[in-house]
Design a protein around this nucleic acid. Structure first.
Lengths: 341, 341
DNA sequence: CGAAACCTCCAAAGCGCTTTGAACGTTCAG
DNA sequence: CTGAACGTTCAAAGCGCTTTGGAGGTTTCG
């Protein structure tokens, strides 16, 4: 049943019925009730396609899914998506996943912005030079960012306090007597990696320690990459006594490297991992339980979706700039540094 | 630029331009070329919304995303989605993710089918009694299934040979001298869990062994659930000497249980896991490397998307019914059963 | 009592595309 | 030379909704 038929049934015009349904004030309460009841009774549902054409709004939010990137490092993505899905469902918004390869990612964003298939897009993992942000800004297409944009002015975003988290974690290790600390970070071009890097460096500086005791590595955060790097570092004479891990997956690789080399955690090696709270891999289910800097990526997902919807509803960009605190949770993977050997 | 403007520019009617662009035969090659060139030059892109309204087709395929379910057990989901994305991108199809909670999943499917926001939906993890399939069949809405539908007649699906995989794996364990085998399976109401169960049972029967030596447990396949079950079983007097795991995540939990109890794999305990090829957790990166029954869920994703698109293009349902072979890959987590204690 | 000010409701014009039915030349067979 | 057949193009009618610009009727106020 469409609007025309419904209107005919009610002996009203399409206009009135449409307005009654959409909560416009030009229609009397009495009429509205009648219309609403009838719509209910006939199971009338407006056609999204028609509404989209008429209003120019899609009632959908876009997420660009970069398969190659996400699959490798992101079991996180599902958890994040779950958060986004949660809020968007409440508002009846659909989520459009636009597949792309790294090479045509920009084109994908362009298409999304121009086609009007979505009203707003959510951007994740901003980079220090981010063509996606430039493009969307230029096209004046609404977007919100999950993570810290390189130039946050005029951009709505939320981020976790990567800087604080790694500063805190590093300070904690230093307090435990660790001097040679390895940091297995994400790829250098991500702003979060930069923030984490700075956090760790500041902690060293604050303790009056030379910066070169911090052995930092940038890489895609897979278990395997982490395994290789950790293994290499731990085989050296002057091996690190503590490793800061960018994610739980990284910790997994590090644990394996340590096990293979006969190093016991935390006796011989302390490990702190950043934990985005993947339910499939709870930090406290590891052996030993992992000390982590924790923040829920799912919660971030729900929040960023909220922001996206607010943006569609007319909120100005740049209104939201939240940085969520990250908590250091001390568990069994950290201990005092071993005696100098 | 829209069609009208483009037509005006070319001094042609909208009809002709539209037809030229969409490859209809009623337009001469000369005209078509001119139109195509102009469209290119002006960067004309037809409005999806308008096209959708006019044709009634959405040019999108739907995936219902059950956040609560997927997040818990499915880092797989991303990998699967990547497969779907890959093929749908090639055909310019969008992927609409419809969030739902378990309780309103059926309603979500109904909405999707009626709204015309998508042309076809992909169903995953069919159950022995599956209301989603019943609903879509009844509404005569196109769908394809990833996994084995309870009543496959007239339904296009692909599945991996769960039965064969677990029969093979179980036989292999029996050959190695294992008699007390534990099977940590998915939830009972999934058809794949049933198939696996049957596969293992048949292997026992074929070896002339009593069925009660197979200790089968159904549960959501999380590492934690697996850990608990395995731990409990391994603490018993008559503990299993081998455990069949429904997924790599399950294996993770089992490994932890074994480690905590001081059991060495594969000396004291053999493990075979089913491996869907999550790149984040490669079976050969475990310690020890895992013996697996392997099949790529990503490949399945691309195939099922192909089927979905074929379905949209008019292919009859029930045309495709593929069952992919699963390979047993023997690595380091299996060995001959320990001597009877 | 008449005009101004509402309050409700409506007809009709889009939104940008596809598609039907027909028109206009041209060519071809009879 | 005429009528049929064909190849090409077009005007116009949707698709189902929103929204503009009124139109009628009722109330309010000087």
């Amino acid at each position: 049943m469409n609007l025309k038929e419904l209107a005919a049934e009610l002996h009203l015009s399409q206009t009135t019925v449409s307005r009654a349904l959409n909560g416009y004030p030009e229609v009397s309460e009495k009429t509205r009730e009648i219309v609403l009841a009838a719509a209910q009774r006939f199971g009338y549902r407006p056609s999204p396609a028609a509404r989209r054409l008429a209003t120019g709004r899609a009632h959908a939010l876009g997420v660009v899914f970069n398969a190659e990137r996400n699959v490798l490092m992101d079991p996180l993505f599902v958890e994040y998506l779950a958060g986004v899905a949660e809020t968007s469902a409440k508002q009846g918004f659909d989520i459009l996943i636009s597949p792309s390869t790294p090479s045509d990612e920009i084109a994908t964003f362009g298409r999304l912005a121009r086609d009007g298939t979505v009203d707003v897009v959510i951007l994740s993992a901003p980079q220090t030079v981010d063509a996606r942000i430039s493009l969307l800004s230029e096209l004046k297409f609404p977007f919100v960012v999950h993570g810290r944009p390189p130039e946050p002015a005029g951009i709505s975003y939320i981020d976790i306090d990567n800087f604080g988290a790694f500063q805190q974690a590093t300070s904690f290790l230093i307090q435990l007597g660790h001097r040679r600390v390895m940091l297995i970070n994400g790829e250098e071009h991500f702003t979060f990696a930069q923030d984490r890097s700075r956090g760790a460096a500041i902690a060293f500086a604050a303790a009056g320690l030379p910066n070169d005791m911090l052995d930092e590595h940038f890489m895609p955060m897979t278990a395997e990459n982490a395994y290789r790097s950790a293994r290499q570092a731990l085989e050296k004479e002057e091996r690190p006594t503590a490793i800061l891990c960018g994610s739980i997956l990284v910790a997994l690789g590090v644990l394996r490297a340590a096990a293979e080399l006969g190093l016991e955690v935390p006796r011989d090696l302390s490990i702190i991992a950043h934990d985005d709270e993947m339910p499939a891999f709870p930090a406290d289910q590891f052996h030993p339980q992992l000390t982590t800097t924790r923040s829920s990526i799912r919660a971030a997902g729900t929040r960023v979706a909220e922001m996206a919807l607010a943006r569609v509803a007319g909120q100005k960009p740049g209104t939201v700039a939240e940085v969520w605190p990250v908590q250091l949770i001390v568990r069994g993977s950290t201990a005092a540094a071993p005696e100098r050997g």
